[in-house]
């Protein structure tokens, strides 16, 4: 990974951080409703893995903590913020919300709010890729707690039986909502659980984007070359609660302090400063530019966009004008 790539990734991760922090503020201001699950602390997972893949070409899906994966796939941050503001200019016209960001033209196949729901969907996308003969891969990002759903086991089993081109990325942030992993999960190391399905797997430090990238490159090559599924476990931490309705009182302060010292953005920043690629002032300038861009472009667009018209309320339930529905097909 050369210095220019690292600098770009630093900027992208910092944008992701500031975007999510701005969502927090907008939620507190009641501009954003419903549930809001934020990504700060985990940025190196999405950016490291997708740097090794082909976002916009490969198919990506994830859970409800989905804004940043969508942005990395190419969905415009403006239309994501507009969706959070429930405006008609949002990526889902205000019908989806924070947990259901979709950007199908960028092959971001959605955020899903049932824990573990995307496991079989991602395997199905891989089945579709295989049938159509393309060299895309299907990438599914989910948290560690999703692995206690039946869909985890059912999907890993099918993915291996049919050798599907799917990469499962486990963002292990150690908590399932508010329950620490060792209190809910018999085997704490998630990559070990996959050995029961004869799927290759690896556990790496999810805070160091260079390590994530390196492991993801190997994983992506495995899957793209037709060798079947792969499971990558990234050890990470979310700074905020599970969602905005979470008091975040269940985590020891020492633990939070320990992880804050391993911040993925600060680690990469300091590394770049150390080798003389950037200065602290460069970083501050970058940060200022990002904050300004978020206000002047992203927030402004969301604020100024119109509400969805009442006419769309019933529009997307079932297909309209489908010839197989009303009859008259010769």
């Amino acid at each position: 990974m050369d210095a220019e790539v690292k600098k770009r990734l630093l900027g992208e991760m910092l944008f992701a951080r500031r975007f999510e922090e701005r969502c927090y503020e907008a939620y507190v201001e009641r501009k954003i409703g419903g549930f809001l699950h934020l990504y700060p602390g985990e940025e190196a997972c999405a950016y490291g893995v997708l740097e090794a893949a082909r976002p916009g070409y490969d198919y990506v899906m994830t859970s409800y903590r989905d804004h940043i994966h969508a942005i990395r796939c190419g969905v415009d941050p403006k239309v994501i913020m507009a969706e959070l503001y429930s405006k008609v200019t949002g990526c889902c016209k205000g019908l989806g919300g924070s947990m259901h960001i979709f950007g199908v033209e960028h092959r971001f196949m959605g955020g899903y709010a049932l824990v573990g729901g995307p496991f079989p969907l991602a395997a199905g996308i891989a089945k579709g890729i295989k049938m159509k003969g393309g060299d895309e891969i299907s990438i599914c990002f989910l948290g560690d707690a999703a692995n206690n759903q039946g869909t985890f086991h059912e999907s890993l089993n099918m993915a291996k039986v049919w050798e599907l081109p799917v990469l499962y990325v486990c963002e292990n942030n150690l908590y399932g909502i508010g329950t620490r992993i060792d209190r809910s999960t018999a085997v704490v190391d998630q990559y070990k659980r996959v050995s029961g399905y004869n799927i290759p797997s690896e556990q790496v430090d999810g805070q160091d984007i260079e390590l994530v990238y390196k492991a993801a490159k190997k994983a992506v090559e495995h899957v793209r070359s037709g060798k079947g599924p792969y499971f990558l476990e990234l050890m990470t931490y979310r700074y905020r609660g599970h969602s905005m309705s979470d008091s975040n009182a269940y985590r020891p302060k020492d633990e939070e302090r320990m992880w804050s010292k391993r911040d993925p953005i600060i680690m990469l920043r300091d590394r770049l400063i150390e080798v003389g690629e950037i200065t602290l002032d460069d970083y501050k300038q970058m940060d200022g530019d990002i904050l300004e861009k978020i206000e002047s472009e992203v927030i402004k667009f969301a604020e100024e966009s119109p509400q969805p018209p009442l006419e769309i309320l019933e529009k997307y339930t079932l297909g309209e004008d489908d010839p197989w529905v009303k009859g008259g097909v010769a």
């Binding site: 496991f119 395997a123 199905g124 579709g128 039946g150 999907s155 099918m158």
Partner: peptide
Amino acid sequence: DTPISENGYTGLGIGASYLGI
């Protein structure tokens, strides 16, 4: 022939249908 995993293979079918299957 699927494994006896109703939720799993139904979800797999849905995912495949996203791609036109």
